[in-house]
Design a protein around this nucleic acid. Structure first.
Lengths: 132, 132
DNA sequence: CTATCTGCAAACGTTTTGCATCTGT
DNA sequence: ACAGATGCAAAACGTTTGCAGATAG
């Protein structure tokens, strides 16, 4: 777990379980999803620990908080620059690793210094297209 | 208020007050912002009415629900296609009426039918840049 | 007249907090 | 040893709901 050690946070068994659940996970889980998954291995796991760990991982840039779901936060262990495609019907989320060059006319930024962007594409996934 | 009449919803005084507050409003207010503003004119206004009205206006496409703020919904009376620039420090939101051509490689959409997109630019507004 | 809306309060789902205890380093 | 994490329960927060009474069309 040397990959985790460089996070410079205390590696408790609970945190390792959360990290293992998140590693390579492409489901953009909510705190509850994570809680339920880790509960299987740690029956005493609490929400406080999940949130505490997510907060620590956010600070270490090991996860990104997504605003793609109104009502609850979701978390993405892939912190590389990428975008998302959201199915408006079943809410499935797909990663899109494509870099877009977006030139914003200077006169429209009102003095903003732009640092990045995040694109949410929306549409219908294959399954939802089939059921009209 | 013929502009409101074509919404085909019952125009109660409370709803008119909300509509007037929203008209041309570029602050992307939350339900609470709207509630507080309208409360001045209607001391008996309730949150239920604010949410009820926002739901009706959403259905009539008179407002758009924004997911730009994790933790609470914000509403945008400008329903034309546009994007947002968010200050990561003071959370100020600026509209960006620029149309970007985003070509997504077919082989990356996994069968999704793309219908639109929404871009969130982030950065530092003029004021927040000054205070380093 | 009546389908719909209002306002209140209670319920809900998610996230945060306080605190006594425990544990990685 | 001790800074920091855990687990529990309570609180906080935004949003939704049920319902009796009011009202726009």
């Amino acid at each position: 777990m040397k990959e985790f050690r460089r996070l410079q946070i205390k590696l408790t068994p609970q945190r390792l379980a959360i990290l293992n659940f998140l590693r390579g996970n492409k489901s953009h889980p909510s705190a509850e999803d994570i809680y339920k998954a880790v509960l299987k291995h740690y029956p005493t796991m609490s929400f406080a620990t999940v949130y505490n760990t997510l907060e620590a991982l956010k600070n270490k840039q090991r996860v990104k908080e997504l605003k793609i779901d109104s009502g609850k936060k979701r978390y993405d262990p892939d912190t590389t620059k990428h975008h998302h495609i959201l199915c408006i019907k079943c809410k499935k989320i797909l990663d899109l690793h494509t870099d877009f060059k977006l030139d914003v006319p200077e006169e429209l930024t009102h003095g903003f210094e732009l640092l990045g962007n995040s694109i949410e594409f929306y549409g219908l996934c294959r399954k939802c297209r089939k059921r009209h």
